[in-house]
Design a protein around this nucleic acid. Structure first.
Length: 150
DNA sequence: GCCAACGTTGGC
DNA sequence: GCCAACGTTGGC
């Protein structure tokens, strides 16, 4: 079982939203590196840290789990969606989504400054300068450290 | 709101 | 295939 970290702007979709809805497609990812992980690597049962970005207190707010592996992101075919991708073909989807399910919301989030000062997490893509990935792998060792910090 | 970093686009 | 311009991300 692998671990991942997914970012979302809480104004758009937060851990509270997922807690209410329990399961949700993780769609709208429009970055090729992230797409490749969604398509090829994220497996059912993988644990995923839920990170809130672009908000007053960025950080990890809880845990979710992959409940369905990569499949075509439906929003690419929806002309009314902000994620519409005219060049995508049904038989050759360009963008992928996974389904996630709620696991737990942390009473106390693990905020970015804590993550940044942790020596054992200095290789984590999240805290590397200029990182812009919305989806990134987390090693087993890093996942253990994150859970230990909480 | 600012701005650094970086991915993407498009002209050549 | 290079690379400048542009747009977006995301912390502060």
């Amino acid at each position: 079982m692998a671990s991942w970290l997914f970012k979302s702007e809480p104004d758009v979709f937060s851990i509270h939203d997922l807690e209410k809805r329990r399961r949700e497609p993780w769609n709208g990812v429009r970055n090729y590196q992230a797409r490749n992980w969604l398509r090829d690597s994220v497996q059912e049962g993988d644990e995923i840290f839920f990170y809130h970005s672009s908000c007053p207190e960025p950080g990890i707010y809880g845990l979710m789990r992959c409940s369905r592996t990569g499949h075509a992101d439906a929003s690419q075919f929806d002309a009314g969606s902000e994620f519409y991708e005219p060049a995508a073909k049904l038989e050759a989807p360009r963008w992928f989504q996974v389904e996630v399910e709620f696991v737990e919301r942390w009473k106390k989030p693990l905020l970015l400054p804590q993550l940044k000062t942790c020596e054992a997490l200095k290789e984590l893509a999240l805290v590397r300068p200029g990182n812009r990935l919305s989806i990134m792998p987390v090693s087993d060792a890093e996942a253990a450290v994150i859970k230990g910090l909480r």
